[in-house]
């Protein structure tokens, strides 16, 4: 018998939400990885592989709290436990409860920049990026211009409401972003469905990629 029935290796960007559905179950271990690894997908793969190999010795099953994330989860070698990965593009689908809801909104609100409390707290909203990341590198004017270019084809900036604390603050910050960059503000109700499934299962084929022991995860497994 190994120490845990299941280990969830997840991105810090879903920490608050995952912990909410986790309920301190003793037989399940949660491991969180730094949030910005997707910016360097090759590094994400390496770091994830190290963590997977280490955790595999202590657990019967490994589930990732990631999507394909810029191909960061493609090319992972499953340990003897096998490997289960949500069949999604990125974490936005996690906040929205699954592919079906994401696809619906994707068509209903084309060109949406999604924000969650976590992304706002980490200053990864457009205004936060300009103020805290871009400005220091290229000065304010170019920083602002860059962000405007980056999101020029977007129509909406959306707040995904997962009923967290300080909901009003996050809504207001999203509105501020929308106003500043001249986009429409829109609010979507989040859903814990997929996050709950990551912890509880069932790991159905519609929502999850399953990698057999010693085989590699492939991008094609994520594509519809």
């Amino acid at each position: 018998m190994k120490k845990y029935n299941k280990t969830i290796i997840a991105c810090r960007s879903v920490k608050t939400e995952l912990e909410k559905v986790y309920n301190n179950q003793q037989n399940i271990k949660l491991v969180f990885m730094p949030q910005n690894l997707h910016r360097n997908p090759e590094k994400l793969t390496i770091r994830l592989q190290e963590t997977i190999d280490k955790e595999a010795e202590l657990t019967d099953a490994i589930v990732l709290g990631y999507g394909l994330c810029s191909n960061g989860t493609a090319g992972l070698k499953a340990p003897s436990t096998g490997l289960i990965i949500p069949k999604i593009h990125d974490c936005i689908t996690l906040y929205l409860g699954g592919e079906r809801n994401y696809t619906r909104l994707f068509h209903q609100y084309p060109g949406t920049y999604f924000l969650t409390p976590n992304w706002i707290d980490n200053k990864k909203d457009p205004l936060g990026l300009v103020e805290n990341e871009y400005k220091q590198r290229v000065g304010f004017e170019m920083a602002k211009e860059a962000m405007e270019t980056e999101i020029k084809n977007y129509n909406y900036i959306a707040f995904i409401n997962n009923k967290s604390e300080h909901e009003d603050y996050y809504r207001q910050r999203t509105q501020e972003n929308a106003e500043y960059f001249n986009k429409d503000f829109v609010e979507f109700e989040g859903s814990m469905d997929l996050l709950t499934k990551i912890i509880e299962g069932p790991y159905d084929n519609e929502n999850f990629v399953k990698v057999n022991p010693n085989e590699f995860s492939k991008q094609s497994q994520f594509l519809k």
């Binding site: 590094k43 990341e133 871009y134 860059a146």
Partner: peptide, 13 residues
């Protein structure tokens, strides 16, 4: 950019 050494505003500049 791919290596994460350059950020978007620098790429755009």
């Amino acid at each position: 950019w791919r290596e994460g050494e350059m950020f978007m505003p620098e790429v755009l500049r």
